[in-house]
């Protein structure tokens, strides 16, 4: 059984590094493509922000991690710049999504017609009265 999987691994000269990195890159590309589908299909700006800010950034994290592992294992090159890029994307993507949603709500972009709850509206009106 082990010999079979070793044969699969070594097929066409593909080593195990390529399988790991290819898996990470494939996960990342699938997430990124699904978030693009969500960006087209969802009805209003808040649901689109949900699609974009979660899955696209997770996909990018997977792809950058795959690149980091590829150069670490294949060449023994520890890239601190790539690690900083991963950390920076991980840190800034929720901030960007939150600020854009806040700007959209404050500038009066309407929600979709079939959305059922708007808690922030009551809160803001109470804040106006006080």
């Amino acid at each position: 059984m082990l010999g079979f999987w070793k044969g699969v691994w070594l097929l066409n000269g593909i080593g195990y590094i390529e399988w790991i990195v290819g898996g990470l890159v494939l996960i990342g590309v699938v997430f990124s493509f699904l978030s693009a589908v969500g960006l087209i299909r969802f009805p209003d700006v808040y649901t689109r922000a949900h699609a974009v800010s979660k899955s696209a950034n997770l996909g990018v994290l997977c792809i950058l991690l795959g690149t980091f592992l590829y150069f670490l294992i294949e060449d023994g090159y520890f890239s601190i710049r790539l690690l900083l890029g991963i950390f920076f994307v991980f840190l800034t993507s929720p901030v960007v999504a939150h600020l854009l949603n806040r700007a959209a709500y404050r500038s009066g972009v309407a929600m979709a017609e079939d959305s059922v709850r708007d808690d922030l509206k009551e809160y803001l009106e109470r804040d106006e009265r006080v």
């Binding site: 990124s32 700006v45 689109r48 974009v52 696209a56 990018v60 792809i63 950058l64 700007a103």
Partner: peptide, 20 residues
């Protein structure tokens, strides 16, 4: 805000493309 969000998504996807 839709347009700005899509521009941000383009930047993120470009980053992934450069990594690949």
């Amino acid at each position: 805000p839709d347009r700005v969000m899509a521009l941000d998504n383009i930047g993120v996807n470009l980053l992934a493309g450069i990594a690949i």
